[in-house]
Design a protein around this nucleic acid. Structure first.
Lengths: 342, 342
DNA sequence: CTGTTAGCGCCTTCAT
DNA sequence: ATGAAGGCGCTAACAG
């Protein structure tokens, strides 16, 4: 026989020590109100003395409540997602729920695989980014009656809830702002739009906004870039090569904008005198560059917190939180300015 | 076509459809080699047709293999941790293991609570930051024979493995570098050292390095700051107020350095002409500032990847990876320069 | 190679 | 308000 101290203590052990039945211990642990005060205290004491830690798997198996939530984000390398997850995790922890975190590398097939894993782990809710997903992913979730929320978008579809903002509207805001500064020739460095509805909608919103201001396609150049500094630089170079006349550039993220800015500085293009650049996200980096970046603020942490709130809300009351649109504020700093008068 | 039946399909259902016993299905699912090719294919086909997803809780309960790993980091808001987690998650995903992520807000008591939750979830390994933890936390893990790894440090203690770097050595490197530039009066903006062995060791290493170069305490000023831009600014202000003569400042992180730099710019202090500033981490932001930051590169992603590797390694072979010291490289950019000759 | 048997630790009726 | 008993879905023995 191994020494008794090396065996994991289980619920029965607590029951023995407290001199009651396993059922009573279980009730105490689950805050079942109909347990006498004496019993309750004896159980709690026994559990503490034994250093009892319940077995989550057994609990989940028996009760079908796993107290697990999953999230699949494109990447943790970009603060915009890390911060959302930060808010999500913090809120879930308050409710005693654990978060399983996965990344998809912006690949919807990979997202599906990760979703399968989450279902296997028995998560009760899945927090997704954007509203574009493989139909298999959605079907998988629906089949197992797992709740799911889209973030970074406010379009709820099917059983999904959505907690986010209107990317299209944000694009329009950027268009209006730059146009109001007198600009008439525009560039956009969008994120990769393939499989990314947020990037696509931002771009479409920007184009639609400009169109309704009477700006024709011939006055707008669009390129795409990955979300990193180097890609931002390259994209800016490509953009200026194709459209040398533009005086204002809207970037799909602050990282891209920072890269674009760096390129301009390396070529002696003055920002904002020669060229206005605005970003998207309002991350900490937006205030690190010189000039500081004008940008659109994305409520990343709040989306996470609210998604956590959603996950902690019982299935009955969830429908009340089906769609939540948060504001995207324009933050004016010094990377944007009036167009040079002709 | 998965049948639209509302009941969740379980292993027995797959067995029935494949015309074999549950045990065989289980074997196939677990890649047990002694299953005939025909059987295996029939099972796989049946599982796919039914859209079968195994129940992780039941598996974990029965087999004591949860395929779950947990991590507790101070915060996700700083890229240095987000990137480590990114590497960790990516490696674990390759092995079909899920990651439960928790944050402690640099609070060791909170870390303990989160550790309890992880134990409850049945994680097989816990990835921690630093080597300073409550004894209760360590005991908890040891009692349940859960493997644990320290990161951002290379001091393995007790049952812990360590995958990281030598913070003290890094501090010495900073001291040597700045001294070699001719500086003789130094400042340091350390991270909050309370409950943070990494911050403490960096500071101690810096001081020790200077001491062995013959620099007396009276020529060194030290303040502490939280890891954000604003705190960096304030700390720089405080430091210069207390020690107006210093010509070189070592910051505990790039964020702090960026804040310090911003403060200098706002006061017309030229960097590096009047003052050299160096950071720590080599995050993307280090190249966003003007001038770009000289800094010490922390192998954040690699630590995560290796910690994942450790977690995927069987208990028998783990001892081979008990201590792993990675290099911290000095990255010289333009925020540091020679001391003004007197 | 494949099937049968017996639980893993807990919660949840159903009794009392 | 408490106890007794059964089984959640799966896998590890053991047979054959």
């Amino acid at each position: 026989m191994p020494s008794p101290s090396s065996e994991k203590t289980k619920l029965v052990d607590v029951a023995k020590r407290a001199g009651c039945s396993p059922a009573t211990v279980s009730r105490v642990l689950n805050n079942n109100p109909k347990v006498g005060r004496n019993e309750r205290e004896r159980v709690l004491k026994a559990a503490a003395e034994l250093g009892y830690v319940p077995n989550g798997s057994a609990r989940a198996l028996r009760s079908t409540r796993s107290r697990l939530v999953g999230t699949i984000i494109p990447t943790l390398d970009h603060a915009i997602y890390a911060i959302m997850v930060s808010g999500l995790q913090a809120r879930l922890a308050e409710g005693g729920v654990s978060l399983i975190m996965n990344t998809s590398s912006y690949d919807l097939n990979m997202e599906y695989e990760q979703a399968r894993l989450l279902v296997e782990r028995g998560v009760e809710t899945v927090v997704l980014v954007g509203s574009e997903h493989k139909s298999e992913t959605i079907e998988l979730l629906q089949r197992d009656r797992i709740g799911y929320v889209f973030t970074y978008t406010c379009h709820a579809t099917g059983d999904a809830a959505a907690i986010g903002f209107d990317n299209k509207k944000a694009g329009v805001t950027a268009a209006n702002y730059l146009h109001s500064l007198g600009h008439r020739t525009f560039g956009m460095i969008a994120g990769i739009t393939n499989g990314n509805d947020r990037a696509r909608e931002r771009r479409d919103g920007f184009l639609a906004g400009l169109a309704s201001l009477g700006i024709g396609k011939e006055s707008i150049g669009v390129v795409e870039a990955r979300y990193d500094l180097g890609s931002g630089k390259q994209a800016m170079q490509a953009l200026l090569q194709l459209y040398p006349d533009l005086t204002a550039v809207f970037c799909g993220s602050d990282i891209i904008a920072a890269g674009a800015l760096k390129y301009c500085q390396s070529r002696g293009i003055r920002v904002p005198e020669d060229l206005s650049i605005i970003g998207f996200d309002n991350l900490e980096i937006a205030t690190l560059t010189s000039p500081e970046l004008t940008t659109l603020e994305v409520p990343a942490r709040e989306m996470g917190t609210l998604a956590g709130e959603y996950a902690l809300t019982g299935p009955e009351e969830r429908h009340l939180m089906r769609e939540r649109e948060l504001d995207v504020r324009l933050i004016v700093r010094s990377s944007s300015g009036a167009a040079k008068s002709v």
